[in-house]
């Protein structure tokens, strides 16, 4: 694993998200009300809605376009046939670290 510092936890609003540009397209980094951080593809598999703009509730996000709800742990859509890729992310001393190896490995594959 190679952890890359992508920013401070405070840069993401509570129950909100920010995006990161990667070779794989935009990745959304979510911060839940309880302070957890998740990273997943920013693109809804339904109609391509930007998930980073959705409402974050519990450990889920709702797509702003047509209200698909995704579990941020697994990336699975609830009650729909579809899912988004999730990426390892962790927080250390208030900084958000994303596993870049994962991103580049998948883009190379």
């Amino acid at each position: 694993m190679s952890w890359i510092d992508i920013g401070a936890l405070e840069d993401i609003p509570l129950r909100g998200a920010r995006t990161i540009k990667t070779a794989l397209g935009c990745v959304a980094v979510f911060r839940t009300g309880a302070g957890e951080v998740f990273a997943a593809s920013d693109r809804c598999p339904h109609k391509g809605g930007p998930l980073s703009e959705g409402i974050v509730h519990g450990q889920s996000v709702t797509c702003p376009l047509h209200n698909w709800v995704f579990d941020l742990n697994t990336g699975a859509a609830k009650g729909e046939d579809g899912s988004i890729a999730t990426f390892p992310v962790r927080v250390e001393s208030g900084r958000i670290l994303l596993d870049a190896a994962e991103l580049t490995a998948r883009s190379a594959a």
């Binding site: 890359i4 992508i6 990161i20 990667t22 994303l98 870049a100």
Partner: peptide, 9 residues
């Protein structure tokens, strides 16, 4: 965007 990893790469 919070970061641009394309530049990083």
């Amino acid at each position: 965007p919070l970061a641009d990893l394309k530049l990083e790469a």
